[in-house]
Design a protein around this nucleic acid. Structure first.
Length: 254
DNA sequence: GCCAACGTTGGC
DNA sequence: GCCAACGTTGGC
């Protein structure tokens, strides 16, 4: 069975230990292939070491930015191998405790496949996850797609930066959304011009919170509700930021 | 081995 | 820039 994955990078400039951690879909498109180094989270590292396989699909996610969301598509093109940046003292995520003979941190390489024609934003996915049934303005989105979206770790474990996408229908749904769009395209602009509430309206949503919390139907889960469920979950969160730094360090060499 | 204080992620 | 989420650390 083929697995898919969601991997987060930061598209905006941010300097850590003198290095810009920026790695956007534009950067990725130029590079074509990028190592995913710098992850210092046990669970994420394990995914890369043990479970990612050649050809697995990757949803490329923009985090820590104005409108976070899935901005492109990629695939695994080199399976897990030791992350050499852990041994580089100048690297922001140098880990002095790791032994070269016994690598602790692993990474993979991923290859750029395509950009998302429409950004599949986190607010959109969150909104869709509140709906009891597919919205009429997105006729291509079927019941099973909606169900799959609701299961995404992105929504239930927000801070995990390398995460499995267990249900292939998630990938299908995201591909459809990215390809066809159909919600208000200009949520970006709407947000800038008119603030949150307008942006939520653009999504066909009341979730900006000004219209009463129940307006969107099944929406019940705030951050807190999600967290309570999660509290037991094992893995630590992953440093998205480190991912950016490693790749940008590479970029600079080009 | 409990749990309060602390640190980091990352959405907003 | 704020702060919720939640893992980690360290005192006991």
């Amino acid at each position: 069975m083929t697995m898919s994955w969601l991997m987060k990078a930061e598209p905006d400039s941010r300097v850590v230990k003198g290095k810009d951690v920026k790695f956007s879909v534009d950067d990725f498109e130029r590079m074509k292939v990028s190592p995913w180094d710098g992850v210092r989270n046990p669970e994420a590292s394990r995914f890369m070491r043990e479970r990612m396989k050649m050809g697995d699909k990757v949803l490329f996610y923009h985090s820590n930015t104005k409108i976070p969301g899935i901005a492109g598509f990629a695939e695994i093109c080199k399976e897990g191998y030791p992350d050499y940046t852990a041994w580089d003292p100048s690297h922001p995520y140098f880990d002095p405790k790791t032994d070269k003979d016994k690598p602790k941190w692993y990474m993979v390489d991923i290859r750029f496949v395509s950009r998302a024609n429409h950004l599949v934003s986190l607010p959109l996915l969150k909104h869709l996850a509140t709906l009891p049934e597919p919205p009429s303005n997105l006729p291509y989105l079927k019941e099973q797609h909606l169900k799959a979206i609701k299961s995404m770790a992105l929504l239930t474990r927000g801070r995990l930066s390398v995460q499995p996408v267990d249900d292939p229908l998630v990938v299908e749904a995201v591909e459809l959304l990215a390809e066809k769009g159909g919600w208000d395209e200009d949520i970006d602009g709407a947000k800038k011009r008119n603030g949150k509430k307008r942006a939520a309206e653009a999504l066909g949503s009341e979730e900006a919170g000004d219209n009463g919390p129940e307006a969107a139907g099944a929406k019940t889960e705030s951050r807190d509700a999600g967290a309570k469920k999660k509290r037991r979950s094992n893995g630590a969160d992953t440093p998205t930021r480190s991912e950016g730094s490693r790749r940008s360090a590479r970029l600079k060499k080009e």
